[in-house]
Write a protein that binds this DNA or RNA. Structure first.
Lengths: 224, 224
DNA sequence: CTCCATTTGTTGAAAATTCAACATACATTT
DNA sequence: AAATGTATGTTGAATTTTCAACAAATGGAG
């Protein structure tokens, strides 16, 4: 566990928790560390919502695959970020999405019900964790809002620019995105080839430059 | 306040709170009741996130209007439901959406920071409310997931059917939706005329019947 | 370095959406 | 009952997306 202490300290779930207490809490939560290879399922749609995951290394994606096999990427999480917490907190029977390893990764799984339900050990950090969880889940809500802002746009160009401008707002006009072209298309909910064409067009128009996943916005005034 | 006790008792924010304590808490939260007419703004995009609203009567909508005036309805809330809580809990500077009265309505506004920040009165129900808030915010998260399931579909028909099947799952095959045609289009993020055309087509195909906002699904096996 | 597999870019045809304009239905008021 | 305003349905043209197929580029492995 010690090996992961730095990542865990970054995790907002343990904000304002001292290192020694952290280890005690992990025991209380039945924490276990697991490794997953790229494309492996971590949590599968339909499973009961019992565990909360903490990404220790690598990247995991929240994905939904419909009846026809169309993949849709809802969100992407990297080191120190949580997944599955909303399903546990809302006490759903079956989780409505899957969590997949986007690359080789390590995750810590904890028994979510030990957080949400009363802790029999009367663990004094229980309420601190609930408070932290509230902030985390609320922040996810904002992420969903951003995602809806994107998908509410009607054209591929508008969706792409809305996403890129969101990123530029946080990271500055040069930034790296966590998606390759196919993944970006699955996140923006558009056709990959159409997306590639649109990126080329924006490049020709001098709105942006990009090299793989690294984008630079040149004229942020460009009409979205 | 007494007049609204029934609605407030329904509100999950006050779950496991006795009536007498409820009144005390409302004082602690600086609760005020306000009336809004149809189409009036309750909270406007860009405002600081300070208040949590509880719908007492009528319907409010979470909307986003883009640069070109295209309206997008993110969600709709009725009596006893909360709005604005995620923005307060996530401590954002400016709220990213607006809250509008979809019809004449009454709402209770409470000072959200009094919930999220330490209560100086050491109010003993503070932690109970935080716990309730966690469940509410997590449940909203699931709603967003449903919304994304809808908007991730590519065609108007698929978006509509996804929404109707979601409703049928909860309410049974006959149900009333909280949207007129234009609002439904703004919620599904599609063109209104195209939506009308698709509804007519589904009607002709014998997949559903509808009268205004009341829908009945006839063949739920219909391919989405 | 070459080969192979994967990713990204390009293109044209088919399908679907959007847009605008109008027709019809519905509800309310005068 | 007529008139008015709003909501809903219909249609065709223009735009955009999707789909499929292929070309080009990239990145590792041997």
């Amino acid at each position: 566990m010690r090996k992961y202490q730095n990542v865990l300290r970054q995790c907002r779930l343990f904000e304002h928790v001292s290192d020694e207490n952290l280890l005690a809490m992990l025991g209380c939560l039945h924490a276990s560390i697991q490794r997953f290879h790229k494309n492996q399922m971590i949590l599968t749609e339909g499973m009961p919502a019992s565990h909360i995951g903490i990404v220790l290394s690598g990247t995991v994606q929240l994905v939904r695959v419909d009846y026809y096999g169309n993949r849709s990427i809802v969100a992407s999480m990297t080191a120190s970020q949580l997944f599955g917490e909303s399903f546990v907190c809302a006490e759903v029977q079956a989780i409505p999405v899957s969590i997949v390893a986007a690359e080789d990764c390590e995750v810590m799984l904890v028994d979510g019900r030990r957080i949400v339900h009363a802790c029999s050990n009367a663990c004094e950090f229980h309420s601190r964790m609930i408070f932290n969880l509230l902030k985390i889940v609320a922040a996810k809500n904002l992420l969903f809002n951003q995602k809806i802002e994107i998908t509410s746009r009607r054209t591929t160009r508008e969706k792409l620019m809305t996403y890129l401008l969101q990123q530029a707002k946080v990271q500055g006009s040069s930034f790296v995105i966590p998606y390759n072209r196919q993944e970006l298309a699955d996140f923006l909910e558009v056709d990959r080839s159409g997306l590639s064409a649109e990126i080329s067009k924006l490049r020709r128009e001098g709105v942006l430059t990009c090299r793989k996943n690294a984008f630079t916005l040149l004229r942020e005034d460009a009409e979205v």
